[in-house]
């Protein structure tokens, strides 16, 4: 699978001796800080989330503690192995007996892996291609996203739709977190706040996505002929300018939400009812 179906093109002048010292970079600033921070933060998230996924316990705070809080890593809990109360309305994967988080992680993971911002981050940080601007590429040969497997990055828009589905589910979780089962009625606890902020950040991250911006109206040639799509595009465009910040904020907050639920479920902290 290649991008170049017809590589015969008008030749351009290539070659010639390049000027300047033959060094990987002449940059004098601390260009390595940015990729280092990216690698450190993403590695920390991957390690924590892998542990959280495979530990398979303390992901739900139920009626015993008068709360209805579920970790975003385990929602929707649709496997037979889910703890009682955490299960969704239907057990879709009744045959699944290992950690239920593995079923649901594919969608959000695929969305973030193919995200235009994260691509930039891990190509620079992990793949060193290039580590930073005007710093030599870490590879002798380069085909970019024109061949398998990286050509599959083009399915990002489908993961965007899957991501939206998860946003709906996690929004329902946030609404359900207003319930105080056992104590009766509706309430608002710190856990409710955490799940609400988590849902809002995930919506903002998804709606700031470049694929969303294209699908909602960016793909049209003539804005004046599509006034509604143009209006939506105008709303999403300023959001898109903050895609990087929203990507990081939503990523870190998902981990924090899981940690919070985990600490409450394991009894390390209690979830204070705010009102």
């Amino acid at each position: 699978m290649t991008t170049f179906d017809n590589p015969t093109v008008t030749p351009v002048a290539i070659g010639g001796t390049r000027g300047g010292p033959d060094a990987p970079t002449l940059r004098q600033d601390r260009w390595w800080v940015q990729p280092l921070v990216t690698v450190t933060a993403l590695t920390a998230f991957v390690v924590y989330s892998a542990w959280a996924v495979f530990v398979n316990k303390d992901y739900y705070v139920g009626v015993a503690m008068h709360r209805d809080l579920i970790s975003p890593f385990y929602s929707p809990c649709i496997a037979a192995s889910c703890v009682p109360g955490a299960r969704g309305t239907a057990v879709v994967a009744g045959w699944w007996h290992i950690t239920p988080a593995l079923i649901v992680m594919g969608g959000p993971l695929g969305f973030r892996l193919t995200c235009y911002y994260y691509r930039r981050a891990y190509y620079r940080g992990f793949w060193q291609s290039p580590p930073n601007c005007a710093v030599a590429d870490g590879h002798r040969r380069y085909t970019g996203e024109s061949r398998f497997p990286l050509i599959l990055q083009n399915i990002h828009r489908y993961f965007f739709f899957i991501g939206l589905l998860f946003n709906v589910i996690l929004t329902i979780d946030a609404v359900m977190a207003f319930r105080m089962p056992g104590a009766g009625g509706i309430g608002f606890s710190a856990g409710t706040l955490v799940l609400c902020v988590n849902a809002v950040l995930l919506w903002l991250y998804s709606l700031s996505c470049h694929a969303a911006r294209h699908l909602c109206g960016g793909g049209v040639r003539k804005f004046s002929a599509h006034p509604i799509r143009h209006r939506v595009w105008r709303v999403l465009t300023p959001l898109n300018a903050h895609h990087m910040q929203l990507a990081w904020a939503s990523l870190l907050f998902v981990a924090f939400a899981d940690l919070y639920v985990r600490l409450v479920a394991s009894g390390v902290i209690t979830d204070p009812k705010l009102f």
């Binding site: 970019g144 996203e145 040639r221």
Partner: peptide, 29 residues
């Protein structure tokens, strides 16, 4: 050109095959 409302050419295949858009890995430099 692709966003020009009066333009009639469709350059998408050209961009893919001959202009090498797939080689860009959007590192934003």
């Amino acid at each position: 050109l692709e966003m020009h409302p009066l333009d009639t050419n469709d350059r998408r295949e050209l961009v893919r095959q001959r202009m090498g858009i797939g080689l860009c890995n959007i590192t934003k430099c």
